[in-house]
Amino acid sequence: MSFIRQNSKLVDEFWEKGIVESCPIYDMHGHMGEHYAIYFAAPNADEMVTLMRRANVAKLCFSHHFSLWATPHVGQAPALEAARKYPDILRFYCSINPHYPDQIKQDLAKVGEWIPYCVGLKFLPDYHKIPVSDPAYKPALDFAEALHLPILIHTWNGSPYDGPAVLRDVVPHYPHVTFMCAHCFNNNWTAAGELAKDYPNVYIELTSVPGTRGAIEKMVSICGSEKILYGTDMPWFDEHQGIGGVLAADISDDDIHNILHRNAEKILAPFL
């Protein structure tokens, strides 16, 4: 008898070794730094990298907590510093805080020189309480469209800031942006799958989803595993918890490869 799921060589290998050389992990949604509400066992780059190497994480793309919330005090400096220290594993998103338009301007002017440490932008509309469709996000969206950059956007079902309806308004105007919808519009898996199916430049990203029974299966059945990315909110959630949640889903080994690394490898190719 196997553990997690029966009749999958890939699952058995992950169970035995914790890592599978032919299936590296691309974690497309991480953070870094202390958070006021949470004690993290691994809040910073050194501890995070140690944990991620145990899970064969090839790349973590992250936004630093301080850049997202303490924007005017630190800008993108802590993220850039960490990515420079661990270039083999860390890449960062330039965090966009729509309450600080001058900071956005300054940061976007530097994104060109931060590439390949920087691989795109990160929006957190539900927390910043400004809809993605608001003019405050327009400079960042226009910039990403011009440079064909990926944007990781926090998305949540029913949110007036980043719910399915808001994204359906915005996406058609930016065909060259790769939209990565974080949390798959938790927990409207149908809306997430349909948006990813309807637009070639929309992917859905799994942070906080793996482990939830039936969610991954549902989305794979709508948009296919080619449109789904793996993520953990590292250090919020554990890599092996997330990987275990993907392995436990009733999908094929090929689907698992797509989700854990193949799709992300394509998106990140220009930056690697």
Binding site: I4, R5, F14, G18, G211, T212, Q241, G245, A249
Partner: peptide, 17 residues
């Protein structure tokens, strides 16, 4: 379970340090 599947925390325990 039933809200969560059983496997995700099994792997987290199996490969905890």
């Amino acid at each position: 379970a039933p809200y969560y599947n059983r496997g995700s925390m099994m792997l987290a325990i199996q490969h905890a340090d």
